[in-house]
Design a protein around this nucleic acid. Sequence first.
DNA 1: CCAATAGTGTCTTTCAGACATTATAAC
DNA 2: GTTATAATGTCTGAAAGACACTATTGG
Lengths: 248, 248
Amino acid sequence: MAGVTERTDQKDRASDPETTVTEGFERPLVTVDVVILTLRAGVLHTLLMKRGADPFQGTWALIGGYIHPQEDEDLEAAARRILRSKAGIDTPYVEQLQGFGDARRDPRGWTVTFAHVALIPSDTLSPRHGANAETVAWWPVDARAVAPPLAFDHARILAAAVTRVRNKVEYTSLPIHLLPPRFTLTDLQRVYEQILGRPIEKSQFRRRIAEANFLETVPGEFRQSSNRPAQIYRIKTGLSTIFFDRTI
Amino acid sequence: MAGVTERTDQKDRASDPETTVTEGFERPLVTVDVVILTLRAGVLHTLLMKRGADPFQGTWALIGGYIHPQEDEDLEAAARRILRSKAGIDTPYVEQLQGFGDARRDPRGWTVTFAHVALIPSDTLSPRHGANAETVAWWPVDARAVAPPLAFDHARILAAAVTRVRNKVEYTSLPIHLLPPRFTLTDLQRVYEQILGRPIEKSQFRRRIAEANFLETVPGEFRQSSNRPAQIYRIKTGLSTIFFDRTI
DNA sequence: CCAATAGTGTCTTTCAGACATTATAAC
DNA sequence: GTTATAATGTCTGAAAGACACTATTGG
């Protein structure tokens, strides 16, 4: 609740005196974390940052930070600012994943985080970052696990993010955010197949995409190679992620 | 992120000095809100509480409260404790809805809340509550809107909760949490129809429920009336909400 | 018998899945 | 011509939707 009544507040404190002082935390510490996902060479990767101080110094962790009340419009804006300042990533697709909060995830006490998922196009260059270039790196995400051990409960958050994306790809147009603005239908099918981990029959895939009606051809534009050129498509203006009637 | 590095923390504050002090909030205030939903006489209802102090004194609001770090295991436990202490509701189905946080939802400044949804059986009596009985009441939720104006951004949170439940009912067994432990298939079908707002064909409905395989008969138990008795069902032990392959 | 609701069976249409065929480029 | 991929067409079996029919109680 945004602002409990003063009366209720006092009642809470009166009936639960042990909560007035909690080793360093009268109220939980709030952070915003972002699981950044992209496809690199057909494999899902996530961007991690090596921690420079305790706890978990030297351990890889998700990109995250604090809310800046004067600067951030809302939670999503905070996530976008953190992405920009700590990973040099601008204007990706961002959605809120889930809140995580308990007494054990941070050794220093009760903390809460608003976990987000960001998807960036697969052809995006390695993100620019300021002084700490060698502390940020892409890591492959194979079969819901990531190579290095992660700080805090970040392995759990990452797993939740990958599960969310895998599930959502089954019945939405989410993968368009992993592609550049212009792409072929075969490009799009590859992305679906790579994330779902199974082949999709071509004519069926195209039927679904046509029914969903969220793409349009770029007239006269084709991708050239040593075979029949492929029509270039783009997302219809004004449309975001589309939910299908059925699974893909 | 659960605990940013000390170094990064200092860097944040150094590079953004205006965030060190914010009218009363160095860090955002954290609360937990719960949208309690049930069916009463076939209509979705939500439990609201009248605020006793400013801001929004006298305005209806969702049930909510603060996290008690010494008492609460995690966010869901905090939501359950708040349900118990403020609405007298025990052991309902609770799931996290979404985080809400921005500078405008509370006139006093930047706040964040972890909104939850709780479903309670339709035959549950009016919840017991301590001294403030007349400040808690059930309100019908018709067509995604609730009768009274709500405090803060609670109308938005309530709308998100109802949308979530309506969507999820399409492809899950969520409505079982709105029924007592033992019920007939017709009871269950009525709940689906009431939440979805459309009739479902009986034999199709029963096919889906049978395929989903999450119910079992209570042998020998039937509901008696002046027609053919109806078999009583219960949820198979160990099963929670089931996801269907297709929509209901 | 009738009324009312529980529960099952059948038919038709629709659509997913599999596969075949045609199209268009480079060489 | 061959090779490679794009794009579309066709067939079949399974399942969804509509509807009819049977079952079992009370009165």
